[in-house]
Write a protein that binds this DNA or RNA. Sequence first.
DNA 1: TGAGGCCATAAGCTGACCTTATGAGCAGCG
DNA 2: CGCTGCTCATAAGGTCAGCTTATGGCCTCA
Lengths: 313, 313
Amino acid sequence: MSSEPGATPTPLLHRGLSHRVPDLGALELLLAVARHGSLGAAAREVGITQPAASSRIRSMERQLGVALLDRSPRGSRLTDAGALVTDWARRIVEAAEAFDAGAQALRGRRDSRLRVAASMTIAEYLLPGWLIALHAERPDTAVSLQAGNSAAVAERLFSGEADVGFVEGLAVPDGLDGVVVAHDRLALVAAPSHPWARRRSPLDPAELAATPLVLRERGSGTRQVLDAALSAHGGLAQPLLELASTTAVKAAAVSGAGPAVLSELAITEELASRRLVAIPVKGVLLRRDLRAVWPAGHRPSGPARDLLSLTRG
Amino acid sequence: MSSEPGATPTPLLHRGLSHRVPDLGALELLLAVARHGSLGAAAREVGITQPAASSRIRSMERQLGVALLDRSPRGSRLTDAGALVTDWARRIVEAAEAFDAGAQALRGRRDSRLRVAASMTIAEYLLPGWLIALHAERPDTAVSLQAGNSAAVAERLFSGEADVGFVEGLAVPDGLDGVVVAHDRLALVAAPSHPWARRRSPLDPAELAATPLVLRERGSGTRQVLDAALSAHGGLAQPLLELASTTAVKAAAVSGAGPAVLSELAITEELASRRLVAIPVKGVLLRRDLRAVWPAGHRPSGPARDLLSLTRG
DNA sequence: TGAGGCCATAAGCTGACCTTATGAGCAGCG
DNA sequence: CGCTGCTCATAAGGTCAGCTTATGGCCTCA
């Protein structure tokens, strides 16, 4: 059993998150206890027996090294630490709900009642939330999702493979009608250690254009918007790095490779924790519209309409 | 083994999230595969054998009903669906990292190198992110966290039980110095079905003051700010509901009980998915400062300084 | 053509988590 | 006072997911 004596500088702390964070089932159980004020009632809600719930919460307390519940013969209430842990747990569970909503749509069969085609950014950041909301209002709507670029979305709409599409970009593709459902601003960001992070005055667009950046590859939606916005200021400099995914660009920027331009949607987490810092730029509108689209003249009805009414009220 | 033919209209869909979402270990493994482009390399990173990784990813694909990887004798790459799933998975893992950072601080012993006392809102929403960032820069800083209201934070600082504190509120408690590290705006929100959600013009403060709201109990930070802001407009009406936690208020608002006033920090998720809608209010500044604080004259040094430099650059 | 990367399969072990059965503490009530 | 009904805890036993090791096939490159 790995009884090698020396070694392991950081003692056992590096066996991965999953050994330090309770699994989803335990977190759901904890939320249920918080709601009901009782282990037994929570157990019933999640479909296990009371002893199972008792033991599971107890091993979670052992794992975390923190007492979560005040148990009494009249029920169980969260301790102060327990309340905090429960709130953090709720965020994991919410992320898991979004994952689940997305995964179900991805698996969705062709006979789904609502077939959605969406661009990557929208599928990644916005759609799971919409699907959760849709499920809350119309629980029996089976949704299927296909992700692709604007051209692929348009094609699926024309061929009848999709009921409604979502695209990001400057204009509505030919032959489609659409409404704007959200906006996405592009932000210039850098690691906090970058000199620009300390600037007090907004950056000049020409200076931005002249500086090599970490970017998505040519042809991506983000890159197009940026190209267009900076064409009046001398055009984009040769990129510092060209990467294939938003995630890769983000990782490069966080690790200090250089400044990057990314969708606000992609970086809220990083900004909140100051892994990245936004750098204001003077007078350049790095904004793009996110639109719901459908074949011209065929305004969506039924489930597609339900979905749209969620996205834009 | 459940070989019943017909039946089950919603087949087994209600056994809880944890049966439909892969566990954290599997998600971490997937992220590692995405990074390395190889099951074997990913397995090494997370400390398991290659066959274990292979089988785990495969059962994840079975569970989700979606192919995640294109396997080849030269490695494995994400499919399109796999890329989406991986992005959604990353959000779960990030939430888990925040949970872990918070939980470690909560468990932290008194001999930790950095002892933090923070108000609930800050401990809940901001601190985990800061701790992740701190850990990235100073991996061996052991942090302990105690949560409480402003008075408790001040007390811990005076008694030397804490090295630095974080409070929300209108003013710095007596005897403490501080700097503003972030702002928190209070927002008026309601379920999308509420009439106010359809308003085009901003609400009049007097009308807001006159309407019964879902609120935290008297004495909470949020409530104080709201009271102060509306005292000039006739004072707050009798609350519709008075609840003990931010979460409970949020849940009530989402379920349509009535309009509520909540911290922006608490509702980003709900706004993004339109489970809640923000309602503009005319000319009332519902803003409060979030401050780092320390005993007057004893500017923080060492680890506390490191933490502060993360929160405000 | 052999070395070294990739992935898949098979057989066997372990441990986490479930169940059922039971007991003990506290409240309300006739 | 003792019954009923709620709470939580403990004990004993079964099941299954996920791990390991051992192996084999495919592809590339020197």
